[in-house]
Every structure is written in C-alpha cells, then in structure tokens.
Design a protein around this nucleic acid. Sequence first.
DNA 1: CGATGGCTTGAGATGTTTCAACCCACGTGG
DNA 2: CCACGTGGGTTGAAACATCTCAAGCCATCG
Lengths: 220, 220
Amino acid sequence: MPVGLNSTDLDRLDEVVNIRRKVKRGDLLFRNGEAFTSLYAIKTGFFKTCVTTEDGREQVTGFQMAGEIMGLDGIVSDHHSCNAIALEDALVCVLPFSHLETLSRDFPALQHHMHKIMSREIVREHGVMLLLGNMRAEERLAAFLLNLVQRLHARGFSQSELVLRMTREEIGSYLGMKLETVSRTFSKFSEDGIIDVKQRDVRILDTNALTQLYNPQPCN
Amino acid sequence: MPVGLNSTDLDRLDEVVNIRRKVKRGDLLFRNGEAFTSLYAIKTGFFKTCVTTEDGREQVTGFQMAGEIMGLDGIVSDHHSCNAIALEDALVCVLPFSHLETLSRDFPALQHHMHKIMSREIVREHGVMLLLGNMRAEERLAAFLLNLVQRLHARGFSQSELVLRMTREEIGSYLGMKLETVSRTFSKFSEDGIIDVKQRDVRILDTNALTQLYNPQPCN
DNA sequence: CGATGGCTTGAGATGTTTCAACCCACGTGG
DNA sequence: CCACGTGGGTTGAAACATCTCAAGCCATCG
C-alpha cells in the first residue's frame, strides 16, 4: 500500500495484518455493544452491517465485500454500535486499532489512508441518505444494482451479471422498503426488459435504462 | 483539549486554530466540488449540510451547531461532496487539514480525537439511515426534536424550549418528508399536547411522550 | 403598508405496505 | 433417490401513509 519502506518498516506493517479470522455464513464478526478492539479488512466473503432498535426493527447500513473495511463505528465509544454478519463464509484480516494508530503516526501514507477510508464511509452514507430520503422504489433498486455491479466489476467480475448474496428482505431493509416491494420492483424491471432475474441471479440487460432511472434527467 | 503539553506544543496547536472565518446567514462555507483544504469547527452559528443530484433534488445530511466539525466529506477525494450553508450568521475556526495530520502524528490524543470525530459522524449517519428507512413521520419528527434539544441542552440551553433555525422544508429534507407533512405533524403534536409550536419557537411539554413515539416499546 | 417567504390546512391522488395465498428451489433424511 | 419440509420469493387486492396541488394565512422587513 504505502511506498518507500525498508524491511523493518514492512515487518511492523506485517504485524498488524497477519491476524486472520474465519467467519462462517450467518455468524457475527462483531455485535452491537461488544468492546471495540480492531478494524476488519475483508479478504474473501460478503457481509452486511445493521443497526437495531429496542423494539426489534433492523436497518441494514451496508453490504461489504472483499477489500472493504468494517468496524469504524466502534472507534467513537470503544464499543461497536452495529452488527456485522457474514452472508457467506468469509475470511477477514483483524487490524488491532491501537496498532494502527501507532503505526499511522510513523507512516503518513497510512495515516492519510485511514482518514480517507473514514471519509469515504461518510460520503457513502450521504448517498444512502439521499436515496432513502428522496428516491422512489425503482430508483432505489436501480441505484443499488448499479452500485453493486460497479463494485464487483472493480474486483474483476462481470459488468452485467451478479449473484445477490442477500435476501429480498435484506435488500429491502437497506433500501427502506418491504421485501414485497423489492420483489415487485425486480419483476417490473424484468418485464421492462431491463434485467433478467432468477432468484438471486441477476443479469443486467440495459445498464443505460438503470442509470436513467437512478439519475433521471431534469425535464427541460 | 489534549493534556500534558509544553508551551511550544501549545503554540503549534494554536497555529492550527487561530484562523477564523465569518459566514453570513445564507452563505456557503464550502460547496460541492470545491477543493478540500480544511475542516471547520463551528464557534457560533448554525449550519446545514446537503447533497444534491443533477436533477435538482436536495438531501439535507445534517444540521451542525457550535462545537461540531464540518468538512469530513472532503478528505476522501480532496474535494467537498456537499454544501455547507449557514442558517444564521456564524463564526468558524478554519483547521487546515494537512496541519492537522502533521500535528496528530505528534499528539496521539489529537490523533485519537480526530478518529473519534469521524467515527461519531459515521454512527450518527447510521441513526439517520434507521430513521429514514424504518420510521414513520411522527417518529422521525420526535427523534429530530429530541436530538436537537439534547444537543442544545449540552450547550447550556433549555431542555424544553428551542428555536428552530431551519425551515419546514429543510426539516423535511433531512427527515425524508415533504414540508406539508412536517407541518401537519407539528400540528398533530400540538393538538396532542406534546409540544407548543409557534412558527419556529417550540416548547416541549411532554418529553416522555416524544420518547415513547420515537422509541415505542415492543408490544408484549 | 404592501410584498414576500414561510407556514398551515384541506381534499384527492399516488406509491408503498399489509395481509394472504401460493410457488419454487434447495437440502435433509428416510 | 425421492419426498417432504422450510425458507425465500412472487403476486394480488385492499388499506394506509404520505404526497401533491391548491388556497389561504401570518410574520417579517424593506
């Protein structure tokens, strides 16, 4: 990641990255209320994070895939404030946060990288707020699919085919709609020839139409 | 803020804090797309931050008051991705970000403080997502009022009286509802004897009822 | 004092949810 | 290897909350 390091430096960096942890599908990587010690970098697998209320409502706050960082929520209070659940068997790097802080004092590149990661998460959440506050069901699902496929593509997967690792209910929770509405909207897209859906397999037939939906032009 | 500093240290810290900037009501502190150079700490005044879409939709992402930090969105891309607009005449401390990064390498307490600030923002946004994704109009407004009054109280203001610095439309944008719905919900609370509203002056008569609304007990 | 922006309220339209029934795919165990 | 059970997904119809459009009111300020 950063540059211009000698071998001692590399050893120190290695120290922070060499703890691994396996998480089985359905298991929690960390849970709401748990003491915060580490950030987690996903090596393989797929996660959801969600917050809950006392009366049992659940809001999925994000879906995370390989290369993404989880656990930032825990820094502020030394306790996690959400649950991280593996949607498929996963392997993560455990990054003890105090080590990260120590190291990033010596490596400005690492320091800046951490700041960027947190800032990116803040900006991502702004986008979700826009989606939840302003968009209708079709726009939400279009935005969701485009975002997913774009992130998968950046990891070498297809630009047009994807396998959903989450249920309709989880998609709905993330997008602020009920699972039935998610299902109906998938069907609508399918009828319109925009996508092909068969359960969790989705093939995007008309990316342009999705983009249009997500980002409608102002009517001049 | 941090502890155990000699006078040279204090001078260095002072350097980063002694730039002030006045912002008049209605003016932008920074705008979407603008180059990112600094964070801003509010000394006095009240701001909103909002993101916009090409087709002109606007989502208020937060309201900020004295003591709070703005501009974290700019770190990831070196450009701001939202607008910060003063809702009343304001004074901010300009905190050049590169100075902050340099300083926080020498002051672990400052470093950790910055991490906490970013983490706090992430957690706050989780809460907003929960609100936007799961709650109904009354719950949203109750949550909003309770949050505002709590933050004001922490700054020495009343626990029960507040003056809204934002319009119904801005509240609505933040809470994902139309201004008419905001207005109606205020009226409903007023009819129910929970609050007293006269334009922007709000007096909370029954905090308990608001809490109940926001956080309904599971029906046993 | 009039203009303006912000706020309130009503009535009808709309999109999403709710409730219900049904279907399908998958995995397990007989 | 098939049968069955189960969780997930689909679809329909009615209920509901919020939005839209419209009119009118109020406070503020030049």
